[in-house]
């Protein structure tokens, strides 16, 4: 597996690093957005793809990271603000994960969605109480700098998901996905493993959130906690294939491309097409592009 995918991935990464040398600001912006979605979707797969606990509130980590980022950036500088944002999201995941991960299936879906909305309104209220309705971030890094950092995070998120999936923790998460009670009887520390996956999936979105605030140069709670972000992540994962680390590349690339082509000219068509794609994949190719097109017969080891 490593052998087959290492070279294409290195080529893709090298090509991604080369984008700014041949592209203008517009294309760098598109590439930045693609890298952002890959980072977010990869981190979602680490939790939801591997454990089967489908989160519809992944934006909460992005939004919290954005908030912590904007609060810290002017005080301590960009590097520490981004690190602090990732740390805050990870700590938040540890704090809410234990109770949240006790419910399964549709209840977990609704709980994560509700949690993200709840946090959004808390932040809106806190900001309103402080007399702030949006915040500006001036003198942030250039698009080019942001692109390289987010690209690095996308690569890190991919590597993290890839290696966790193949680790002892990944093995445990897969057992939990297939039958949680059976996993417990064979000695998998179920609660601990789920919490670890939840926290690991939260850190990178937190950092990305802080960076994207720097990109748009202002912070507005209802935008950084927008549930559409969560829906888009899930859609990208389903279209690309949520079973391993390869899926998000295809899902994110397809949707970012569609969005760039259609969003400005025909936004309604984009949303309709998104819905049709999602339904079609769920019905006819639940394994996504990777599951459908790239899967090969299981090799029988001697």
């Amino acid at each position: 597996m490593i052998g087959r995918w290492t070279i294409p991935l290195i080529v893709a990464l090298a090509a991604a690093c080369g984008v700014p040398f041949v592209a203008g600001d517009y294309l760098i912006g598109v590439a930045l957005s693609l890298a952002m979605w890959i980072a977010l979707t990869e981190s979602w797969i680490l939790l939801s793809g591997l454990t089967g606990y489908v989160s519809l509130g992944h934006v909460v980590f992005y939004g919290l990271g954005a908030y912590v980022g904007i609060l810290l950036w002017g005080e301590v500088g960009g590097v520490l603000a981004v690190g602090g944002a990732g740390l805050a999201s990870g700590v938040f995941a540890l704090a809410v994960g234990y109770p949240a991960l006790r419910v399964r299936g549709p209840y977990f879906v609704m709980l994560t969605f509700g949690l993200a909305e709840f946090c959004k309104y808390i932040v809106i209220d806190v900001e309103a109480g402080l007399g702030q309705f949006s915040r500006l971030l001036l003198g942030g890094p250039s698009v080019l700098q942001l692109y390289y950092v987010v690209l690095g995070l996308a690569a890190a998120a991919t590597a993290l998901t890839f290696f966790v999936a193949r680790s002892r923790l990944g093995y445990a998460l897969r057992a939990i996905r297939e039958n949680e009670e059976a996993a417990e009887t064979v000695g998998v520390p179920v609660a601990f493993c789920k919490l670890a996956a939840f926290a690991l999936s939260a850190i990178i979105p937190g950092m990305v959130g802080a960076l994207m605030v720097a990109r748009s140069s202002y912070f507005e709670p209802s935008q950084v906690f927008d549930p559409i972000v969560s829906f888009t992540i899930v859609t990208m994962a389903i279209i690309g294939g949520s079973d391993d680390a390869r899926g998000p590349f295809l899902g994110a690339a397809l949707l970012v491309l569609l969005s760039e082509i259609l969003w400005a000219r025909a936004p309604q068509v984009y949303m309709i097409l998104l819905g049709i794609l999602l339904i079609a994949f769920v019905l006819f190719a639940p394994g996504g592009i990777t599951g459908r097109l790239l899967s090969r017969p299981v090799k029988v080891k001697p």
């Binding site: 897969r174 039958n179 059976a182 009887t185 000695g187």
Partner: peptide, 14 residues
């Protein structure tokens, strides 16, 4: 201490 639960809780996809 190992429990073999009722109802053969195996991992179906593995």
């Amino acid at each position: 201490i190992v429990l073999i639960p009722e109802g053969r809780l195996i991992f179906p996809e593995m």
